[in-house]
Write a protein that binds this DNA or RNA. Structure first.
Lengths: 151, 151
DNA sequence: ACTATATAGTGCGAAATCGTACTATATAGG
DNA sequence: CCTATATAGTACGATTTCGCACTATATAGT
């Protein structure tokens, strides 16, 4: 079994993943308000999907970004009035991030605006292919995550 | 057929793609020299895989980045001595980007250093799953590309 | 309780990304 | 040939990302 072949295939996979990440990000951002970028939306979306009240550090880990980057992303969301920072009653060093009604409204609007694009793009693949793709991407992501933790 | 379901699935796919792009980029950059980032490597790799002598604008389109970004990426590669800029004999406004021996050596070394990581990560999926994944990602990328061109 | 170490968040500076505007050159229409 | 328009590249500034260092607070060991 040629190991070289497998390396090239994985390289090609990561190459496609990188291009798709870039194109899909551009597609998303085209539907967001001027100056609002994917990370800003992703933060609000995450707080709604999982739950708000999490600390910045937990959020930084969830998004795989340095904590300084998360500080900045949160500050933008605060400036827009989408989240509020409160003290963490369980840890004086820490804070908690809470959604506002405006934040929830912004997310709902963005999701609705994104819908048609997602529907259109879904045409690229059959439903079984979509499911297979998602399953394998998830496997790969988990594997990469574990490899990273092994540092 | 619930359209909503398909939207959620595509959203989840793009979410995984974004995370994998981030993790694989970090994995790559950990093997590159200090301060060298993925776009710098990608430029050199592209010039070797496809061919050098292309113009900055053509390269910007190939990487789906604004031409100002490509100017910057090329300037870093010039600073490292990996590429040289020459006039474009066919167009006085334009330039051409050529690899140096140092650039080729840098790319060969980087590929070799990346190999073990790629092999390790290939364990996440069977060979047929890798092939299926690559095929579907390519289909999706082509579809996104066409959707973008339709603007 | 006291000290040493670890952790949460942020200020700061460097680099990357990218939109706008500008210069130089090319192309098209008359 | 001359003018109008389009295109290639870059200078500049705003924003994002992120490493380093610092402060404040928590936790562990004695």
């Amino acid at each position: 079994m040629p190991d070289d072949q497998s390396q090239r295939r994985m390289f090609a996979i990561f190459n496609e993943v990188g291009i798709i990440a870039q194109l899909s990000r551009a597609m998303f951002e085209a539907r967001l308000p001027e100056g609002v970028l994917l990370p800003h939306f992703s933060l609000i979306n995450h707080l709604m999907r999982v739950r708000d009240g999490q600390t910045p550090l937990v959020l930084a880990r969830a998004f795989q970004v340095p904590k300084t980057t998360m500080t900045h992303i949160i500050s933008v969301a605060v400036k827009h009035g989408w989240v509020e920072l409160h003290p963490n009653p369980k840890d004086g060093r820490s804070k908690t991030v809470w959604l506002t009604d405006a934040g929830r409204a912004f997310r709902d609007r963005a999701i609705a605006d994104l819908g048609p694009d997602l529907t259109h793009v879904a045409d690229a693949l059959s439903v079984p292919d979509q499911e297979g793709l998602l399953t394998r991407l998830t496997d790969l992501r988990i594997h990469l995550d574990r490899a990273r933790d092994a540092d």
